[in-house]
C-alpha cells in the first residue's frame, strides 16, 4: 500500500522539532539544511504550531511547472524528484503555496519529502503519521 505523510492532529504538536532532526539524520546530519519538514509557531508559541510538509496533492502544482520533468507524480499521490534532471530553477518551490518544498543550498536543488515516515517514527505525541493513500 502506498503511504503518505499526514498531519494527524496539529494540536498535539509540542514544537520539539524531533521530526526535523529525524529528517536530516537520514543524511547523517544534525541541523535543518536537508530537512523536508518544518515546524514553526503559528504566530507566537501560545497559538501552537504549524507543520509544513508535502501534503500529497492529487494534482501537484509543483509538477506542472517543472520545465525538465525532474518532478513527476508518484503513483498514489505525491511527487518524486529525479535530481539528475533538475536544473534548480526553483519554480516548484514557488508553485507550492504550502511552502513545503524546501531548498538545498549546497546542491542548489529542491528538497522534497520522500514519504519514508522517519519523522513520524520520532513524533511521540502523534501529531504526524504515515497513512495509506
Amino acid at each position: 500500500m502506498v503511504k503518505k505523510l499526514a498531519v494527524l492532529d496539529v494540536n498535539k504538536c509540542i514544537g520539539c522539532m524531533e521530526c526535523m532532526f529525524a529528517c536530516s539524520r537520514r543524511e547523517g546530519r544534525v541541523g535543518f539544511d536537508k530537512s523536508a519538514i518544518r515546524v514553526r509557531s503559528a504566530g507566537g508559541i501560545e497559538r501552537g504550531f504549524v507543520v509544513v510538509v508535502c501534503r500529497v496533492c492529487e494534482d501537484p502544482p509543483c509538477v506542472k511547472v517543472c520545465p525538465t520533468d525532474a518532478l513527476r507524480v508518484r503513483k498514489g499521490g505525491g511527487v518524486i524528484l529525479n535530481k539528475d534532471k533538475c536544473i534548480g530553477c526553483g519554480f516548484c518551490a514557488q508553485a507550492c503555496i504550502m511552502g513545503a518544498i524546501f531548498w538545498d543550498d549546497e546542491l542548489d536543488k529542491p528538497i522534497v519529502c520522500m514519504y519514508c515516515g522517519d519523522c513520524a517514527d520520532y513524533c511521540v505525541h502523534n501529531a504526524i503519521g504515515l497513512v495509506d493513500v
Partner: peptide, 19 residues
C-alpha cells in the same frame, strides 16, 4: 492548561501554558 510545548529537540514537552 491551554497548551504544552517543549524546548528544541526534547520530546518531553514539560512547558505548561495556561490561558
Amino acid at each position: 492548561l491551554s497548551r504544552r510545548v517543549s524546548c528544541a529537540h526534547c520530546p518531553v514537552g514539560c512547558v505548561h501554558l495556561a490561558s
